[in-house]
């Protein structure tokens, strides 16, 4: 191979430089958040994550109500969206006529493009009055947030599960059909078991989305920093408290505590997404 020409070298170096923006930004992001939240970790230590008091006036901060709210609302969302999404994906991949499946899939993809503030708007003016009519004392609350989140992650679960189901080898399915199995029996005995790890990956990826979702949750969760076992009661989430309080943070300690919550949120989503990618990469390797 001949030596690289000067023009080629320059080109390669410059595109490599643009690519470098991404790891640089990721490192700068982590460093900035760690720096801005340092005083919180110093003052409260790791107990910041499991104490309950959030009092910006007295500068006492504990993040547990927000961690709880984020976890519970996201799990509720998955509880609703996973069966719906997997069911929809099974229908779209295995059972529906192709033209209908394409059309429905298109709608699902567009649903993923709906901005979350618009889902929040639907939440405030449709879901909250509906929950009130159904007997929820406030209308807003953990359950309402979980429902809205379910609609946010539904298209992801459906789309990824569908991709996974499409990788099931035809001969496996055809062998089942040859034995006289019904369509559903093929889905249950071949397609779903074969796709298990991929579907779990899809669930984790959606969990990552749900954990970090801000606007739709902020608008309907009730924004009350306390822990209550009743799902009808208002709660708070990590992303919501940042969105609500950061612009008006009165003291440096308050600001630092909010950034500390952001750092925690980032760490959690990285772990969840990492797990999801591991599961989905393994699938890709299988081809």
């Amino acid at each position: 191979m001949t030596a690289e020409r000067a023009g080629d070298r320059l080109f390669r170096m410059s595109v490599a430089g643009f690519a470098g923006v991404v790891p640089l930004a990721a490192a700068a992001l982590a460093w900035q958040l760690a720096r801005e939240s340092a005083s919180t970790w110093k003052t409260f230590g790791p107990a910041f994550l499991w104490t309950l008091t959030w009092d910006p006036v007295a500068d006492v901060f504990g993040a547990l109500p927000f961690l709880y709210g984020t976890a519970v609302s996201s799990l509720l969302a998955l509880l609703i969206a996973v069966p719906l999404g997997v069911g929809a994906a099974v229908f779209l991949t295995e059972l529906a006529p192709k033209r209908l499946a394409d059309l429905l899939m298109f709608a699902v993809e567009l649903l993923a493009a709906v901005p979350s503030v618009i889902l929040g708007l639907m939440g405030i003016f449709i879901l909250v009055p509906l929950m009130r009519a159904l007997g929820s004392p406030y209308g807003v609350g953990m359950l309402t947030a979980g429902l809205i989140l379910a609609f946010m992650v539904l298209p992801y679960i459906t789309a990824i599960t569908r991709e996974v189901l499409l990788t099931v080898p035809r001969p496996l399915k055809e062998a089942m059909y040859a034995l006289g199995a019904t369509r559903w029996e093929v889905v249950r005995a071949v397609s779903l078991p074969f796709s298990r790890s991929g579907i779990v990956g899809a669930v984790f990826l959606s969990l990552g989305r749900a954990l970090g979702e801000t606007m739709a949750v902020t608008m309907v969760i009730g924004n009350t920093p306390r822990i209550s076992a009743a799902l009808h009661d208002p709660g708070y989430s990590m992303a919501a408290v940042i969105a609500n309080e950061l612009a008006e943070a009165a003291s440096d300690a308050h600001l630092s505590a909010l950034v500390a919550i952001g750092l925690t949120l980032m760490a959690v989503t990285i772990v969840v997404n990492g797990a999801a990618r591991l599961l989905l990469y393994r699938l890709e390797a299988r081809g």
């Binding site: 958040l33 801000t214 949120l265």
Partner: peptide, 20 residues
Amino acid sequence: AADVMNGVPSIVVGLFAYAL
């Protein structure tokens, strides 16, 4: 890094812009 950044919630990226 791109995969990590894609998974980071947008509000955290907003925090970054705020700090920066």
